[in-house]
């Protein structure tokens, strides 16, 4: 190199490596692969009240059956930690579950 002068031993090694032909050994040394596309949706983008408590503060009069909640989590990552997310990682998770109240047994664990 011309504008930077290597001083210590490590600098000499960096110098050597940087002089070697570009894209020589890249296997695990390069930058990580670009992240998978991530659809930014979920609780920060939409507001869907009514799942946790009803107007009286209980759960008897929810505006939708509680089972519906699972899809809300699933489809737009309402609680991404609890169920797989439909948008990015597990699009087929509920494929065998047409009606959650009847077919919920077909919902399986996800093994990434």
């Amino acid at each position: 190199m011309k504008h930077l002068r290597a001083i210590n031993k490590k600098a000499h090694r960096i110098d050597q490596i940087s002089e070697s032909p570009e894209k020589d050994v890249v296997a695990l040394q390069g930058a990580p692969p670009p992240p998978k596309m991530h659809v930014p949706m979920g609780c920060t983008f939409i507001f869907t009240p009514g799942w946790e408590v009803d107007s009286a503060g209980g759960s008897a009069g929810l505006c939708q059956p509680v089972e519906r909640d699972i899809y809300d989590c699933y489809v737009d990552c309402y609680w991404p930690a609890q169920v797989p997310d439909h948008l990015n990682n597990a699009p087929d998770w509920a494929a065998k579950c047409a009606s959650a109240t009847k077919d919920w047994r077909n919902l399986d664990l996800i093994f990434p």
Binding site: R5, A6, I7, K10
Partner: peptide, 18 residues
């Protein structure tokens, strides 16, 4: 002017342009 590169630990002296 010198650079101590982090995290490699390499030390380089710079010319005026650098």
């Amino acid at each position: 002017r010198f650079l101590y590169l982090v995290p490699s630990g390499g030390i380089f002296a710079l010319d005026e342009i650098a």
